[in-house]
């Protein structure tokens, strides 16, 4: 395959950045998108240029490291797929592909396609945990949890914290991420003890980091590689109001 690339290049957080054109002549349709980027980088290194910086780790679609806006879509055009699991067969021979970083005030660009997502870590650290001592692993049936509830909690827990929701949202809102983290703990008995404090702290940190508010467009859920549902946001809204009433 012949692929024309327009890749975002930015030397550092203060640099203005611009798109840079590259052409790759011999791309296999079986390559993953990141492998294609590796080929581009090898070419750049051989030519004596600076390779394109991008985040990646597991390349199995579970770590949430890869973060590229491909042709305007976070993680590219394929539904429920991370960039590392996207293959070049999803594109046409001779196609021009735009590759850009997540763009949000709370995700400043470190270099090229790599952004600083430590704001997500700080939100998680603000309350996304269970502090009650649960001791050793109890008997599996000691605490009865309905199947539907545990399924819902697990579905929320599949959020890999990649930030595609923020990248897709016109307001750069992190509500889908935060609500998934709130939900997966709140739905289970061990997490319910701290539900009010957790929601208040995580929402306060989310606002502090400069993420926007949710205007219910649904772009986040559509872009999410793990298909986290909008219902999580409704649940978090409900919890937040409840926590405010309780604490006042």
């Amino acid at each position: 395959m012949k692929i024309h690339l327009k890749v975002w290049r930015q030397k550092g957080p203060e640099d203005k950045g611009c798109m840079e054109d590259h052409t790759l002549d011999d791309v296999s349709s079986e390559m993953s998108f990141l492998e294609m980027m590796d080929v581009l980088n090898q070419k750049l290194i051989k030519e004596g240029h600076d390779p394109v910086t991008f985040d990646h780790d597991c390349r199995e679609g579970i770590c949430g490291s890869c973060s590229m806006v491909i042709n305007g879509d976070p993680h590219g055009p394929q539904k429920a797929t991370t960039t590392c699991q996207l293959h070049m067969r999803a594109f046409k021979d001779g196609e021009t592909i735009y590759v850009e970083p997540w763009k949000a005030k709370a995700f400043p660009v470190i270099k090229d396609l790599m952004v600083d997502r430590s704001s997500f870590d700080r939100i998680q650290a603000a309350g996304g945990y269970v502090s009650v001592s649960t001791g050793n692993a109890p008997d599996a049936n000691a605490i009865a949890i309905p199947k539907l509830t545990s399924d819902e909690a697990f579905l929320s827990a599949t959020c890999i914290g990649c930030g595609a929701c923020v990248a897709a949202c016109k307001n750069a809102s992190a509500m889908l991420f935060v609500s998934a983290k709130v939900s997966h703990l709140d739905l289970l008995p061990q997490g319910q003890e701290e539900t009010h404090l957790r929601t208040q702290r995580m929402v306060a940190q989310m606002d502090e980091e400069g993420f926007g508010a949710c205007t219910n467009t649904g772009s986040c859920s559509a872009a999410c590689p793990k298909e986290i549902k909008l219902e999580n946001i409704a649940r978090m809204n409900r919890r937040y109001t409840g926590s405010q009433i309780k604490s006042s």
Binding site: K6, W8, G17, M19, V69, N71, G72, D73, Y98, E100, K103, A104, K105, A106, K170, N171, A172, S173, G210, F211, G212, A213, T215, N216, T217, G218, S219, S221, A222
Partner: peptide, 25 residues
């Protein structure tokens, strides 16, 4: 506030296709 959160730069690629989000929203 939402406009500020998006940051100063918009995406270069303008999506021609319809997004899931309605025009009204």
């Amino acid at each position: 506030k939402n406009w500020k959160s998006r940051g100063s730069q918009a995406y270069t690629y303008k999506k021609p296709k319809k997004t899931k989000a309605s025009l009204a929203s």
